[in-house]
Structure formats: C-alpha cells, structure tokens
Simulated scan of single mutants.
Amino acid sequence: MRKFVLAVAAIALATTAAFADVITDRQAVMKENARQVGTLVKMVKGESAFDAAAVLAALTALNDNVQKIDVAASFPAGSDQGDTTASPKIWEDAAGFQAEVDKFKAVTASAVAAPAQDLDALKAQVGTIGQTCGTCHEAFRVKKG
C-alpha cells in the first residue's frame, strides 16, 4: 500500500511539473510576442524612428512565433492551475479560443505579407494587431490585480 501511495504521489508531482513547463513555455511565447509588438509600438509613439527593415524584422519574428502556437499542446486540460493568467474560458470554449488564435495567425501573416512602408501604414497594422490581441485577452485572460 505504501508503494502505491508513493507511486501516486510521484505521478501527481510529475504531472504538476509538466503543467508548470507548459505554463512557462506559453508565457515565454506571449512575452516574446509582446517584445516584438513593443518594437513596433515605440515607432508608432515616436519613441524610435520608423525603420522599414526593423518593422519587417519585428513582424516576421512575431508571425513566426504566432504560427507555432498549438492550442492543444500549449493549453492542455489541467494547465489552468498554477502561476497562470489563462482564463478557465479557454477550456470551457476551446473552439472560440482556437478561433481567436487563428485570427491572430491570419493578422500576423497578413502583416508580414504586406509590411508597413511608412508610419501611417504601421499605425494601422499595429492597431489591427493590438485589437486582435486585446479581443483575445479580454475573453481568455484573467486580469492581474
């Protein structure tokens, strides 16, 4: 009986650790997305000069990262527990969440296909990207504080 209890405890610990890795991985993806968008926002705000090559680099990095998002792998059942701001709505409305991720993939792919060549075009692209992020965050992320 003691061996059984230890085995169950070991499995539970391993499962918790696995979910911690999934959470850490998806948080890293989101932080990298924010970093790339931040590069673009600095140009929009006039904090850095418009640079078409830097725009393309940031959009490409963002798109590459977004295209790798695999909802099933990044948000498995049970990974709503722990240090995460992922809303339970992700698991309650998996199809809706997948649709938002798919929208984000389409928006970033479109941006890379036709990157902004001037500040006004960049403002429009950043607005579309930001709106897509915001819509998903409103529905599928728990606000901190």
Rank of each mutant, 00 (worst) to 15 (best):
D25G: 11
D25T: 13
R26C: 09
R26F: 08
R26M: 07
R26Y: 08
R26D: 10
R26L: 10
Q27F: 12
Q27G: 15
Q27N: 14
A28D: 06
A28Y: 11
A28V: 09
V29Y: 15
V29P: 10
V29R: 10
V29D: 11
V29K: 15
M30D: 05
M30P: 07
M30K: 07
K31N: 13
K31A: 14
K31I: 09
K31F: 15
K31E: 12
K31P: 05
E32M: 13
E32P: 02
E32T: 10
N33Q: 14
N33T: 06
N33W: 08
N33E: 14
A34K: 15
A34S: 13
A34T: 07
A34N: 08
R35G: 10
R35D: 10
R35S: 13
R35K: 15
R35M: 13
R35I: 12
Q36D: 10
Q36C: 09
Q36I: 01
Q36V: 03
V37Y: 12
V37D: 03
V37K: 11
G38K: 03
G38H: 07
G38N: 06
G38T: 06
T39S: 09
T39W: 02
T39E: 05
T39A: 05
L40N: 06
L40I: 03
V41M: 11
V41I: 08
V41E: 05
K42P: 01
K42V: 04
M43V: 00
M43W: 01
M43C: 07
M43H: 02
M43L: 05
V44C: 04
V44G: 04
V44M: 06
V44Y: 08
K45C: 02
G46Q: 06
E47R: 14
E47W: 05
E47G: 12
E47L: 11
S48T: 15
S48I: 03
S48Q: 08
S48N: 04
A49Y: 00
A49V: 06
F50R: 04
F50L: 04
D51M: 02
D51S: 02
D51E: 00
D51L: 01
A52E: 06
A52N: 01
A53K: 09
A53H: 00
A53T: 07
A53P: 01
A53E: 07
A53M: 00
A54P: 01
V55L: 10
V55A: 12
L56R: 14
L56Q: 12
L56H: 08
A57P: 05
A57R: 05
A58S: 13
L59M: 05
L59T: 02
T60E: 00
T60S: 09
T60I: 00
